[in-house]
Amino acid sequence: MTLESILMTLPYITVVVLFSLGLFTVLFKKNLIKIIMGIALMQNGANLFLVSLAYRRGEYAPIFTSAESTDMVMPTAHALTLTSIVIGVATTALLLSFVIMIKRHYGSINTDDVRRCKE
């Protein structure tokens, strides 16, 4: 394995590092806000993976202001990333409002404290 072939996979390794940071945060942190931050990191890793799959070397953005249709990167993955970003915003907003309710009910956002059942 040469250095060049490793450099050619550098975007995917970046995705793996980003996703693993999110997974680490979700697994080992106790604060609910930090867990939501980890979920957002995993979402960003998935988005970066989709965008890096769409790239064709030496070609331009899929808009007809500066390039012919034969010199463009693939548009479908960009559209899917746009969908994914909006869904990520919606789910993050819902999760944060759940955290607000948990704080109001239990007085804490530590996962060890909210584990018990409360009458």
């Binding site: 050619m8 996979t9 550098l10 995917y12 790239y55 070397r57």
Partner: peptide, 9 residues
């Protein structure tokens, strides 16, 4: 999996 992916681009 990242190392075994196809080359970028």
């Amino acid at each position: 999996g990242a190392v075994e992916m196809r080359p970028f681009g």
